[in-house]
Nucleic acid binder design. Structure first.
Lengths: 153, 153
DNA sequence: AAATATTAGTTTCATATGAAACTAAATGCA
DNA sequence: TGCATTTAGTTTCATATGAAACTAATATTT
């Protein structure tokens, strides 16, 4: 059939996959960021830190960075802000005094318990816009693309 | 069955849809940004401007902003940079001297013609990782989610 | 054990971003 | 026509970001 022996040479931004995915993700992020900000005065980065520590307490900053796909500078700043606001407790690990041990304070847990439903409700509405089949497809696709070594593309 | 009568109350970041989409989009963007930068010294914003003007010349900055999902400040800066580097020509519209008329210079067209294959090849590799069915699903999903009024979720 | 290298986390610095203020032109309205 | 309003694009300003330098602690050599 000889389809695609030579590269397609036209490009329309509207149909360009990386562009579409990026625009979509930004739209979702901005909306969610707005909610966290107005309701809890929390940034997305801070939300992510709360989220992993709510689920798994006593992580180090590096572990948080790993689980949140954030870089260590961003984690450091989010952690310090959350600590200064009283939502996080941070102390040094006994065995290794470089490492910090992070966990939610009582107040942090309270905020966490309020913010999680907001996040989940947003996700639920998003999911509700899709059929069960589409949702399955979405999971399949995300899993597959997530597994790719994008650098190598 | 009573599934989900009450909201789920646990949240794992790994499974949280907005998070997954965002991380994925960032990974794609960063990779592509790296290519444009190292090969052409062009940012993603600049690439987008080139892309729409390569496809549709003589747009105003506002039209570019519209087609690229960029805000006007970002467009202004990208346009000025591209103009100063000689890839874009910018003159005032005859009928309306506030409006600019933007188009690629000869050199800009040359870069455009080099950069488009890089973008398309990246997209093609991405698509190649999916089956035809999955690709169809991806398009369906993007179209559907793109159509949502995210603010209202 | 002293010297060297590695690791965790912070700070610095240079750049990116976007909201709001601004400038200039065009349009609406008195 | 003159004044207010809107629109296109730029500039300013305050904040966000991340790479690289830094500090302090631990681990590894020699």
């Amino acid at each position: 059939m000889m389809k695609n022996t030579v590269s397609t040479t036209v490009l329309q931004l509207d149909n360009f996959l990386p562009y579409r995915i990026s625009v979509l993700a930004n739209r979702l992020s901005r909306t969610l960021a707005g909610r966290y900000q107005t309701q809890f005065q929390i940034s997305i980065a801070e939300w992510r830190v709360l989220a992993v520590l709510g689920e798994t307490p006593d992580l180090s900053a590096a572990e948080v960075a790993d689980k949140t796909a954030m870089d260590k500078v961003a984690v450091s700043r989010a952690v310090n802000r959350l600590t200064s606001v009283g939502l996080l407790s941070k102390h040094l690990a006994e065995q290794d005094k470089r490492r910090s041990v992070l966990s939610l304070t009582t107040e942090g847990t309270l905020i966490y318990q309020q913010i999680v439903p907001v996040a989940l409700s947003f996700e639920r509405s998003l999911k509700a816009a899709l059929t069960a089949t589409e949702l399955t497809h979405l999971h399949t696709l995300l899993a597959k693309i997530q597994g790719l070594d994008v650098e190598a593309l």
